[in-house]
């Protein structure tokens, strides 16, 4: 990574600053950028090195591990297996749900083993992601539209939305566990007697509701920031031209807020794909609420290497989703985050 920051002179002239009076014109400019490049690599080095140690090293290490066999008792067969190179058997274990059979070869993983849960965990993870991100986008947009209006008490609402965001997810999970308790307030308010964490759909909805409560504010704030970038004159002009409220929303608000919205959706999607705390504490992954992250954690104590294969698969899935967002849906995160510099605006 650090080599990319090398002091290579850039051709394009930089704006502003005092030119270095060394050598003929143009060369001084190149020197200046070169020296900035050198400066930048020194300043960036600590961060890049730290991230290489805490992120790049574990990724590589996980990939290496994923091609190793786990030593120990095989969960499926009860026989002892020695470690050593595994080829792609760990990946086959997850993707094809094939567990090693006694006497060599593989059989379909019996139900109940972790190996048999990969596709259901993937389906659960995507289900949670699609449902929560959709709900959060719609609700977040609505909240942002309200917060963008002027009314007395607006700052109170803006402060209130930060409360769910500030509560740690672990506490949120316990709180909703209590709300959804059989004798809890949710059943009382809706006059139902649902065992919320006791069967599949109530458990799934409990996770979804808790997640939507916790993270919609973040979405709303990102969208609000996007809304506030739209100049009021644009709306005034549209009003004068006789555009209806719906037309103003569809033709002005949506297109202009789209860049911020796409980034917000991307952030939330990637966050939802790695969802762990909420279902882990709220339902313990029972009743088909096991996400990919929970499956990895459950696997760790049964064998590092198989867990490493699964975490690598999870990482690749998340990476692919991010790639699709950036490549095809135009979520330009880097540009949005302001890398374009002062010249652009």
């Amino acid at each position: 990574m650090a080599t990319e920051l090398g002091p290579t002179p850039v051709k394009a002239p930089a704006s502003g600053g005092t030119p270095v009076h060394r050598g003929p014109k143009g060369v001084g400019e190149d020197n200046r950028i070169a020296s900035q490049g050198r400066w930048a690599s020194w300043l960036l080095a600590p961060t890049i090195i730290a991230l290489a140690v805490v992120i790049v090293y574990p990724i590589i290490s996980a990939i290496v591990m994923s091609f190793q066999k786990d030593a120990g008792l095989d969960a499926a067969t009860g026989l002892f297996t020695a470690g050593g190179p595994a080829g792609i058997s760990n990946y086959v274990n997850w993707l094809a749900q094939q567990c090693s059979a006694p006497g060599g070869g593989t059989v379909a993983c019996p139900p109940g083993t972790l190996g048999g849960q990969f596709w259901s965990a993937t389906a659960t993870t995507f289900f949670f992601t699609v449902v929560t991100v959709t709900l959060e986008t719609v609700l977040g947009f609505w909240m942002a539209m309200i917060m963008a209006r002027t009314f007395r008490g607006r700052s109170l609402v803006r402060a209130a939305v930060l409360v769910p965001w500030a509560i740690p997810t672990a506490v949120t999970a316990k709180l909703w566990f209590f709300i959804f308790a059989f004798e809890g307030i949710a059943n009382k308010l809706f006059n139902t007697s649902i065992l919320w964490t006791g069967s599949e759909w109530p458990a799934k909805w409990a996770v979804i509701i808790a997640d939507v409560w916790k993270t919609t504010p973040f979405m709303a704030l990102l969208i609000l920031a996007g809304l506030q970038m739209i100049p009021a004159e644009v709306y005034e002009a549209a009003k004068v031209d006789g555009a209806s409220a719906w037309q103003r929303f569809r033709l002005i608000t949506l297109p202009l807020v789209k860049p911020a919205l796409m980034v917000a959706i991307l952030f939330r999607t990637l966050d939802a794909l790695r969802m762990f705390d909420l279902p882990y504490i709220l339902t313990g992954g029972a009743n088909n609420t096991t996400t990919l992250s929970i499956l990895v954690i459950n696997q760790i104590r049964q064998g590092f290497n198989a867990a490493a294969a699964l975490s690598t698969i999870t990482f690749i899935i998340i990476f692919l989703v991010a790639f699709i967002f950036v490549r095809f849906l135009g979520a330009n995160v880097v540009e949005q985050s302001g890398a374009t510099g002062k010249g652009k605006k």
Binding site: M1, I33, I318
Partner: peptide, 26 residues
């Protein structure tokens, strides 16, 4: 101003979105 700024920024943003489970096993 330096070459590779976008790359570094992309790398850092990517790192912040990195799934924790991918780190935990190793």
């Amino acid at each position: 101003n330096f070459k590779g700024k976008f790359l570094v920024l992309g790398f850092i943003l990517g790192a912040s979105m990195f799934p924790g489970v991918a780190l935990i096993t190793p």
